[in-house]
């Protein structure tokens, strides 16, 4: 690209920049309306059952389930990797189903039963899936690990409940465990350390299958 063209496009960039300013410019009036002490930030009550324990919270409606767990209940085993549903580190099991807790408001879960990694097992008493991850070295930095484990537990249940997958040959057949099935079903959990091959073996071990 020539320098001239670069400059012409740069001017358009100013427009883009000004557009951003303009968005913000509209905001002060609104901010002034909202001016109030922090304690007055409106909250709403929500009741959750987390790892079998009933918890009542008063939350800013903007609080995601992920932040409610991490910042309000101090259950930091559930990780924030991207906060946009692109990595799976925040996976928890809600009402028996795995979801990304970052893309859910806590308020959407009034009355829900939530299982986090802390609810599966403790260092002294690991869940079989947690123990299999240790045995097969199915993790490295450990940051995606709680999400991987919650997902893996849920995946085995999904196969049992006959939830089909993208790689299933015959949709009308019953869902079955296989290495490729597992890898497809676990693909919503990114591991940048690249422990995938070991994770597949850990989950297969728990499922009683060969990876």
């Amino acid at each position: 690209m020539s320098d001239t063209a670069g400059f012409a496009l740069s001017r358009r960039g100013v427009l883009a920049g000004s557009a951003a300013s303009a968005v913000a410019a509209a905001a002060p009036a609104e901010a002034a309306l909202q001016r109030m002490p922090a304690s007055a930030t409106p909250t709403m009550p929500v009741r959750l059952t987390v790892n079998g324990e009933k918890r009542e919270l008063a939350l800013d409606p903007r609080t995601t389930l992920l932040d409610a767990l991490r910042e309000h209940l101090h259950l930091t085993g559930t990780k924030k990797g991207c906060d946009h549903g692109q990595c799976g580190a925040c996976t928890v099991i809600v009402e028996g189903r795995r979801i990304n807790s970052c893309l859910s408001l806590a308020l959407q879960h009034e009355g829900d039963e939530i299982t986090t990694i802390e609810g599966l097992g403790t260092p002294g008493k690991l869940h079989p899936m947690q123990a299999a991850f240790v045995k097969h070295d199915g993790y490295q930095c450990g940051y995606c690990t709680p999400g991987q484990i919650c997902s893996a537990v849920a995946v085995l249940d999904e196969i049992k409940r006959d939830v089909p997958s993208h790689v299933q040959g015959d949709l009308t057949a019953k869902a079955r465990f296989s290495n490729m099935e597992l890898r497809e079903r676990m693909s919503g959990n990114i591991c940048r350390c690249g422990a995938y091959s070991n994770i597949a073996e850990a989950v297969a071990d728990v499922a009683g299958e060969r990876a």
Binding site: L75, T76, G77, T78, K79, T116, I117, E118, L120, G121, T122, P123, G124, L126, Q130, A131, F133, V134, K135, D137, Y139, G142, Y143, T145, P146, I149
Partner: peptide, 15 residues
Amino acid sequence: DRIDGPLKTSGTAPY
């Protein structure tokens, strides 16, 4: 096995 494994797999290793 990693000695930090039980902490990492149970979500109790603090980042």
